[in-house]
Each structure stands twice: as C-alpha cells, then as structure tokens.
Design a protein around this nucleic acid. Structure first.
Lengths: 314, 314
DNA sequence: TTTGGGATGTCTAATAGTTGTCTATTGTGT
DNA sequence: ACACAATAGACAACTATTAGACATCCCAAA
C-alpha cells in the first residue's frame, strides 16, 4: 500500500472543472467516487479519483446521464467517450518518440492512412491530452523545422497539417449548448498562416470545459474582436508560429486590444510568440509556452469567472 | 453479457432523426424496440436498437408501413430498404433547403455546436453522399457568395471552412493499405486559397474506393507533381474557386502537365474552373461541374485502369 | 362518390424522475 | 477569528413517462 498524493476538494474542483457542490452531490447520490477522509472528516482525493471525475465530466458533457454512468468502471466510462487512458511514465517517452518517428515517416511518404493509424494508436496509448502534448504538438514543430530547412516541401507541411486537423477534429467535442461554459475564440492573427497551433488549443480547450469557436488562420484584429463580441467570449487564444518579425503584427495586436470588450483575456502561444513580447505585454496578454500551460491558464480563468459571477449575484 | 453504452431517448432521437414521441409510439403500438429501463423507469437504448430505429426510419421513408415492418428482423428491414431507395428525391429538396438555412444561420452566429448538429442531421437524412451534394457543397457556394458580397466577414468564411472540414473529416475513410485502390491527389493549385472544394472531392473519392492524399491549398505545380510521383497517383483533382482570372495559374497548369508522369489524369472543378478552360484543355484535364460528375469521372477512370491492368497481364 | 375505419404521426396534461444549485448549520484547520 | 468543508435537505429547471385525444391519410366498402 503506497502513500499517494491526496487532494482537497477545492483542488479537485479546479482540476476537474466540476464545482465542489457537484462533486459532493455525485458522491452522495451515486457514489461516483469514495474519497478517503482526513481525521477531521475532510475529503481527500487520489489521482485516480480525479481522473475518474474528469472522465465522468467528459461523458456527461457528451450527453450521458450521470445517474447511469456513475457506477461504471473506468474502462466503461472511457469506452463511452471513445478514448483510453495510459499509465504514463518512463516507457511513454520511448513509445512516443517511436510513434513520432513513424508519423514523420508517413508524412515523408505522404501516406495518409499510415499517419492516421499512427496517431490513432497514440490516442489509445496516451489519451487525448497525451497525444496532443507528446505526439501532435512536437510533430508540428518538427515538420515546421524540416520545412524551413528545406527537407520537407510545402506539400509535406500541408499534408501533415490537414491530416492532423482531421485527426484532431475527431477528438473535438461539440457540447450541448450548456451556456454556463465560457467561450474561447481560437485563431491566428493577420499574417500568421500556420493554423495548427490554434486548432490544437481549440481541441484542448474543448476538453477542459470551454466552448470553442475556431476561426482559422490570418484574421484581422477587427474580425477577431467582432467574433468575441458576438459570442461573448471570455478569452482569445492566438497562435504565433511564423514569421517572428512582422511589424504589422505588433500593430494588429495593439489594435486588437482596442477593439476587444473590456475584460477579455488574450492568450498567446507558439514558437514565435516571444518575438512580440513588447506588444503582448502592452495588451495584457498571457504568453504560454506549451499546451499544458495554456490549459492551466484557461482553467484558472474559468474558476475566476465563476467566482466573479457568484460575487455579482450577491 | 457485456455492458454497453446506453442512450437516452433524447440522444437516440438526435441520432435517428425520429422524434421522441414517435420512438415511444413505435414501442407502445408495435414493440419495434424494447429498450432497457433505468431504475427510475427511463428508456435506455443500446447501439443495436439505435441502428434498428434508423433502418426502420429509412424503410418508412421509402414508403413502407411501420405497422408491417416493425416486427421484422434487421436483415429483413435492410433488404427491403436496399431495393427501393430511389424514390427519395422530391421531398429531400425542401428538407435540404431548410437545413442549409439553418446552417447559414449558425455560421452567421458563429455557433459551432449548432452547425455541427445541423450537418449531423443532414448526414442522417441524406446519407454521406447526399449531405455533400445537397448541403455542404451548396453551402460552400453560398458562404463564398456572401463573403464576396461583404455580407459575411472573413471570420465567417474561415469558421465555416473549418467546421465543414471537421465534419467531413469524420466522414472520411482511411482504408487499410489495400494497394489495389487507385490513388488520388486532391489539392488546389498555387494562388487558390479556398480548400474546401478539394477537401470535399477527397472525401467523396474516399467513399467510392479511392485512396486519397489530401494536400491542402496553394500548391505549386512541381510539388503536386512530386506528390503524384511519390504516391504513383492515378489522378489529380484540382479545385479552382477564386480568383477566376489569374494568368499565373494558366502557367502553373501548363507546367503541371510537363512535370506529371505520363497518363496521370487531371480533373478540375469549382466555380471558376471554366475561366481557365484554354489551359485546362491543353493539358487534357477533365472539367467537372459538380461533385456528382467528379465521382462519375473517377468511377470511369478506375474501371478503365482495372481493364488496362488485366490486359497487361495477358 | 361518399363514407367509415384502420393506420399513423402529433399533441397535451398530469405525474414523476434527474440533476445542478443553494441554504443553514455545524465543524475544522491555521 | 477567519476561511473553508461537511451534512442534510430544499428547490427549480429540465427531461421522461403514461394515457389518451386528435388530425390526417389512405383504402375499401357502400
């Protein structure tokens, strides 16, 4: 029996995107989880239980009734949402590297079926989040690198981008119109033509409880702001990959700030985001270095919004 | 006895295209399905029952009386639907128009979930081929039209393109490497940035037995030819939508012919393909006016190839 | 042609189940 | 003292269930 990290309900709430209320109610009514208790009677959740709650949230958001699925085993829940989770860890490194190599090879050969197949296996091995972080995202870097160095033609880059989008599109969730969820606009700004980063952010965000409106590549500031206003979006995610020295983009970013409604959070990421640090700082954007970090920021933002909404009601 | 995902009546209604009322009535009056019940007495449908309901809906829409067919086995139901599918025609017009209107509205509102939902229903109603021809393809025209006229912003156009690609990506088949199938390269040539047409062709082709390598938008002739050579592709599908008067494109097309291996069929389609008729004629391209026509050409081409291969063996 | 009746989809009203949220109260930890 | 957590229960907003009424449509008998 090993000691494992145990988490407070607040912590679990933040990590799962469920309110503490709901977590307790699921326990009381359906025994969805049975956390240990501290001496004083407080709930202490294991990582396993956190994962279970996340899986349950995903399944309910996919339209399944909590009362029906709460008693299922992890495997059954995963099968409903069409995903599998891995026991991450040391071997994952090798496996993911091998898989990336296989994918790169498929790209080189322009083999769509092979690429999809490899990505699918990655999904099974690492789960949705894992495959994004350990396979698709580094692959995108690598393909971009090879393209710039001339090792890959534009055809390879296009091919990979399209295939990755198809694969990711399958992962994406279109939720029932649970209007409580905050809205995110994902796109790349004018002049930035590589859309895969923005798309990945969109998919990831949709998994942690955001409604995502994906607008594609090369949007002028006014249009982004228009979409934000129309959707009452809480945040805008911008992917900035290439080029890294476009003076117009700095202008665009400053404009964006002007057009956006007060209180809209701007999140920027991608290889070249750092190159526009000055402008990004000025507009109060958060710069994230990885998908994971981006998810954290989004989680925090959602919590914060929930708190504000509660305050507003008083 | 394995646990399987069970679905609420609402969910089933969405997936079958039948109203919840009708589903219940079919159960009450004809025992067409006998779903399990939850503790609270709610109906829980298995995937098998969902399929049965879909088959029953198709059969009734083909003119059969529910009272007669409700008791049949799955095999019997499918056999009667297989025969008389051709009657569909007339009523589909109104339904598809309504659906297109709904989709356009969702695009206007940038409502991803609504758009996906409508497209999904289109898939249920018209099948894979039908939804392409009667919904997605005309929608693409309409969205493009509105964009050019200024009624839609670039954001709307991007949004629709992305959403449609996600939807179509789900339809796409990635075959096992059954190498007997001929290979098609789908893309748009240099200067043509609207990729949806090429993507639709790719999806349609994958359904009629082609292996498809989708390369995205804006590929120079040399790269297209490279991809053809690498994949030993039998044909190249080019989508030409906008602009319709690019002199460079004519050059590109002539170049393409030079670079391509002998015997590679070029197929061109899209709103503005006619504008390049001269160049297309010179390179021996087939110009198609609709997805349907494109499929016919591809079918013919595949047959022809099969015949040639047989001859070569003798 | 008209009429009647069966088949079929739609609708309503009353009842009940489901689920997220909220409150009040008491307790815990720092 | 203060913020946070636990419990039980209340509640509102949905969603489903049942039985039955109703409007069409079609076919066949009068």
């Amino acid at each position: 029996m090993s000691e494992q990290p145990l988490h407070s309900i607040q912590n679990v709430s933040a990590r799962t995107g469920l309110s503490a209320h709901v977590i307790r109610v699921w326990e009381r009514r359906y025994a969805a989880v049975t956390p240990k208790r501290s001496d004083g009677g407080r709930r202490l959740y294991s990582d396993r239980e956190v994962e279970r709650l996340i899986a349950l949230r995903e399944a309910t958001q996919a339209g399944h009734s909590i009362g029906v699925i709460a008693g299922m085993t992890m495997k059954q829940i995963s099968s409903i949402t069409g995903k599998a989770r891995s026991e991450a860890g040391s071997r994952a490194m090798d496996a993911s590297a091998a898989l990336r190599a296989e994918c790169l090879d498929a790209v080189k050969q322009l083999e769509g079926a092979g690429l999809q197949d490899a990505l699918q296996r990655g999904l099974v091995m690492f789960g949705q989040r894992g495959v994004l972080q350990m396979v698709v995202s580094p692959l995108a870097e690598e393909v971009g690198e090879r393209w710039r160095s001339g090792a890959f033609a534009a055809a390879h880059e296009h091919f990979f981008t399209s295939a990755a989008k198809i694969f990711l599109g399958r992962l994406n969730k279109y939720f029932t119109p649970g209007s409580a969820m905050p809205n995110l606009i994902a796109c790349t700004p004018s002049g930035q033509l590589h859309e895969l980063g923005a798309f990945m952010v969109g998919v990831a965000a949709s998994h942690i409880g955001w409604r995502v409106t994906y607008l594609g590549a090369g949007l002028p500031a006014a249009e982004i702001a228009g979409a934000v206003a129309q959707n009452e979006a809480a945040a805008v995610a911008l992917s900035i990959v290439y080029p890294g020295d476009d003076p117009c983009l700095s202008e665009e970013l400053l404009d964006l700030k002007k057009f956006l409604p007060e209180g809209t959070q701007i999140i920027a990421g991608g290889r070249c985001a750092a190159g526009y640090r000055y402008a990004l700082d000025r507009i109060g954007a958060v710069v994230v270095g990885s998908l994971d970090e981006c998810c954290e920021v989004l989680d925090r933002l959602r919590m914060q919004r929930a708190v504000n909404r509660n305050r507003a009601r008083e």
